[in-house]
Each structure stands twice: as C-alpha cells, then as structure tokens.
Design a protein around this nucleic acid. Sequence first.
DNA 1: AATATCATTTACGTTAACGTTAAGTTCAAG
DNA 2: CTTGAACTTAACGTTAACGTAAATGATATT
Lengths: 123, 123
Amino acid sequence: MMTIREVAKLFGVSTRTIRYYEELGLVCPERSEGNVRLFGARDLAKLKLIFRGKRFGFSLDEIKEMVLLFDLDRSGRRQLERTVEYGRQRTAEIDEKIAELEEMKGEMQGLLQEFEQKLREKG
Amino acid sequence: MMTIREVAKLFGVSTRTIRYYEELGLVCPERSEGNVRLFGARDLAKLKLIFRGKRFGFSLDEIKEMVLLFDLDRSGRRQLERTVEYGRQRTAEIDEKIAELEEMKGEMQGLLQEFEQKLREKG
DNA sequence: AATATCATTTACGTTAACGTTAAGTTCAAG
DNA sequence: CTTGAACTTAACGTTAACGTAAATGATATT
C-alpha cells in the first residue's frame, strides 16, 4: 500500500493530479483509519493505463471509459459481453492510430531524404 | 487556392481554428487583393501534418517546431543539417510512441482474453 | 507533548485551445 | 449598385486539466 506522494513520485506527477483523477472517479483508493489514501497494486495498474492513455491524446473522459475495463470483472454476462465489444472497438482504434503514426513517420522521413539530398548537392 | 471556409470544411474544424493556427505562426496563407486568405497546396499539406500531430497529443507548440521542417528548404547548409538532425529525433520519438501503443494494445487484448474466458466459463 | 512533515478538503487561479460576439469589409449574384 | 453571404480584425467567454493557497487533521521523531 502506497501513500499519495509515493504514487505521485512513481508516475512523475503532482499529488493534485492524483486527487483530481479521484475526483473524476478514475481511481478510488482505500482509506486508512485516519482517512488517508492508500493505493494498492490494482490502483497502480489502473494509473499506469491512465497515464499511457494521456500520452496519446486521449481525454480524461475517454480514459474514464477505457478504465471501466478494469472495474467490471465481477459483473453479469450481458455486461461482460458489452465490455468485450467495447474493448474490441478500442483496440481497433489503437490499430488505426498505429497505422496513422507510421504514415506520419513515412512523410517525415520523405522530407528528411529531400533535405539530405540537398545537403549532398551542396557538397 | 482555397478560401478559409473550404479549408475548415475539408479538415472538419472551425474557421476560428484555422485563424488561430495562423496567429501562432503555424500557417501563413497568401492574401487576395482585398486581404482575404488564400490557401495553396503547400498550406494544405502543412495543415494535414498539423491535424495529424494533434491526434497524437502533440501540443501546438510542439507541432510548431515540427512544422518548421516545411518552411526551411531554402535555408543555409548549417541550418539544413540541424533541421535533418531535429527530424531524426522526431521520427525516433514517433517510433517510441508506436512501440508504446503496441504495448497498450497488448495489455488491452490480455484483458479481453480474460473476459472472454469468463464468458466461456459461464457458458 | 511538541514539532515537523506529511495528509485532508475547499476554493480560487491559470493556461491552452479554441468558441462566440461585435463591428466592419469584400465578393458574387441579381 | 445593392443586397446577402462570407470574409476581416478585435476582444471577451469557455472548458479541461490541473496549480496553488488556506485552514485543518494525521503521523512520525525527538
């Protein structure tokens, strides 16, 4: 069980950021006797997913939906099916993002080759 | 040569967004006799790069630096070398992003398999 | 038990990336 | 040449994602 400052340091963010994510319902750590937040392994895995999502321009609202995958494991069959379907859509989106990134990379490399060509011309 | 509304519609954004990007110095379209913005092919290619960058969580400040690749083609040798070096760093970063996205995809697929397993258990 | 260093909630402040409105200008159609 | 739609600048409004400060409570150390 980690304290909020340890968690913040672990992910390289402020404690405010962690509390804000709790405000939004993204995480819901246990509390100690004296109402102090205590983060378990599952909370940390969730936060890892959250910060990874952030790095790819997902909004916190979108991330909130993605994080539901973490919370719905003892739900009913119908709910599970929808969760799986939702997860499929998300991974499909990620595939698209990867493809687009590679296209972007290709364009930039094209530009670089042009420039290098010009450099060679100048000797 | 396209007008601002045509450009906005083409990319599915507001005209304000396009003007804002000009405010930041990201694009610099020609002007007609009567001071009306006219976007050429090069402006459109640049905007395409800009919106693609946005989809991956790059800030407009970061994008501004990336877009410099478009503007510096008749600069001097030293400048060209630095541009090429900068471009290399950017493509390396994109490689990292791709790798991380694939890791993310793997994690989500792992979760999905767990859920599907549970679905099979429930018959 | 006092002191220092953490924690808590509450609430207002900040910045990026636009949205929106106002007041005026240009362009295409009739 | 006028009328209406689309353009212009200028300026203030908005929202997400936090930053920061105040007042207070918990915890560890000496």
